[in-house]
Design a protein around this nucleic acid. Structure first.
Lengths: 364, 364
DNA sequence: CTGATAAGCCGAACCGGTTAAGTAACGACG
DNA sequence: CGTCGTTACTTAACCGGTTCGGCTTATCAG
């Protein structure tokens, strides 16, 4: 059904709209604007806007009529226009300051992003995701986003000790939710999991199995989470009278393997190793097997960040499990709350749960 | 919402606020617009726009002056405004129709996204990433994006056999680059790696080691890549006179392990197994070890999608390696080209390379 | 019957850019 | 010297929404 050049009557309101402006390439583009809705309803643009946004200023009868027509025309708000006038972008930002290579290795991120997305999708918010090389670039990205008004708020991950991003965000006035311990957040709203409690649980576990000499293959000390775990590890080891060492790495499989070799060469040789992520734990497992040591008879292994990886190895790995997808979702909810005017506060999401699997055994 | 310490109540914020943005004290709101630059330079807004966009219509002297002032004021273009008037969003879209859980397991995606990002960042394009549950939702997302004018083009992954997304994209007129074999792309521009050649190489490899009975643990047959490999596997097996079976799975570790158990229970028992991704290969490795079979003495394993995972197991896994990050970058370049007016065409990125590691051995 | 109050709606300014159309200045050319 | 074509701008109309002041009209107390 073709329509006239200007007047579309109410009669064909029910039929599909073919846009006269988009004729030229045979491409059907539905350019339905609120102006068109206003014309069909016989009201002004402004009234339509109020109706569609559920705001006072129109009667219920008019609102219903507008909504009906909008639905018929399959009207979708133009993001750019809305953003320009309302000064809201309905977009959250997430910067990952890691190499693309690291992102491949760490299953953590994709799950987190998935959790964030799941919440944003239902609010029809968008996610601006940026992968950069280091913290300086990350900060530059925040500056740019703030200037462009590109995002309404940001989610900050990989919190550091004395994190340089915090003062910048504060100065920019960019709403943010930090992912990490309140001790690191300097008063900004944050969501965290209790890494210290988890570490304590892990050491209680290995101590209860009779292990007296243990080692830890940790992430980079600059990371806040690692720092928190460092403290908890030392405290718990002292309390339990364990002989404990810590080996810092860059979280990579390679350094995880190297650190494991180092640990196994020590005298006395530790009989239990706690890893800061699962990738290094799996790498360590391979090292142990290559040296013909038996798990768990000779060595007990405990991993962190329980991904499917820990369940598919042989033997399966004891791990501190937490729901990364849910974590991402929780953080996103907090950011939405913050923008809705909630008081900034820190929020404990959960404590990682120790799942005991085949890599745990009594000291022989 | 006004924040801060000046004690503005919600009531007067709602009723009498005149300039909401200028209210935030202490916050540096750098609202530098093109109008301000025009004022300082003593020229019109339009002239400034021409100057900043490197378009003819201004003298070199004026252009230089404008650029200088813009730099001094640290002007950043407002994305929304530009998008609204220029009808370009400078954003590419990528929809992942997988569960958040799958995304965690498959390191593939994050690497791909990283590669896409690396190209977009330098063009200061943005990436709209959406994670959805299934193809229907993916199609709905394309419809929404097209209507909202939210993206300039999309990257389509996980191509299917007779993919339902292709006609939709065509009808919407949404520029797209498909990731997958031209045989699946139905004439739309695509970037692909030669999965058939890779599969042939894999079978040549196992045949050259003397294996006569082999099995394949494959992905879901609906996936185009899997379908292509299915064909190539059958052809090569016939050519090499191998006794070959195929076991389709959903790509998950669980089903990979199950399929491996099934394979190992067959009579005659295959002496080599080819996996469609590395996650299933690692899961299979664990199954083999749990059954006290030796690798590579009893069984040879070949994985696909060579991630670090293949290098950290013991023994290390032979794998068909391809550069996922580079792949993402390549696809993005093609989409940029397409929008710049290049002819739509298919483009071979590379053929996965067979990296022979410890899991390969002669039949005994 | 009158004046006050409020609900419902209109018109228009505005957000910050892009871009077509118009204009003034200037040199070349017949 | 008048005409034409450039060059370098200016002006103003968009893009598609949001929002605010003000104008009608209905409601209701006095």
């Amino acid at each position: 059904m073709t329509e006239g050049s200007n007047g579309v009557t109410l009669k064909d309101a029910g039929s599909t709209v073919s846009d006269p402006a988009a004729r030229k390439e045979g491409v059907v583009v539905s350019r339905v604007t609120i102006k068109e809705i206003a014309r069909r309803c016989g009201v002004s643009q402004g009234a339509v806007s109020y109706a569609l946004n559920n705001q006072p200023g129109v009667s219920e009868a008019t609102r219903a009529r507008v909504l009906k027509v909008a639905a018929e025309l399959e009207w979708v708000p133009n993001r750019a226009a809305r953003q320009l006038s309302a000064a809201r972008s309905e977009t959250f930002g997430l910067v990952l300051a890691r190499s693309a290579q690291t992102l491949i290795e760490e299953p953590y991120f994709m799950g987190f992003v998935g959790g964030v997305e799941s919440v944003l999708a239902e609010k029809s918010y968008a996610l601006a995701l940026q992968v950069v090389a280091d913290l300086d670039e990350e900060v530059a990205t925040y500056r740019k986003w703030a200037a462009e008004r590109r995002v309404d708020g940001v989610i900050v991950v990989d919190l550091r000790v004395a994190d340089p991003r915090i003062p910048v965000l504060r100065k920019l006035g960019l709403p943010a939710v930090l992912v990490g311990d309140p001790a690191l957040a300097d008063g900004m709203p944050c969501v965290w999991t209790d890494g210290a409690a988890a570490m304590t649980a892990a050491l209680d576990h290995v101590a209860s199995l009779g292990h007296r000499v243990i080692a830890r293959v940790a992430g980079p000390p600059a990371f806040g989470d690692v720092w928190i775990r460092d403290q908890a590890y030392d405290v718990a080891a002292r309390r339990l009278a364990l002989m404990a060492s810590t080996h810092h790495t860059d979280y990579s499989a390679t350094q995880g393997a190297d650190a494991t070799r180092e640990v196994l060469a020590a005298d006395p040789r530790p009989t239990a190793i706690v890893y800061d992520n699962d990738l290094m734990a799996v790498a360590g497992l391979a090292v142990v097997q290559a040296l013909d040591l038996r798990i768990p008879d000779d060595i007990t292994l405990v991993a962190w960040d329980d991904s499917p990886l820990c369940r598919i190895t042989h033997p399966t790995l004891t791990a501190l499990s937490h729901n990364v997808v849910g974590y991402g979702a929780e953080v996103t909810h907090r950011l939405l709350d913050l923008l809705a005017g909630a008081q900034p506060q820190s929020h404990l999401y959960s404590t990682p749960l120790l799942l005991i699997r085949e890599s745990s055994g009594r000291r022989r």
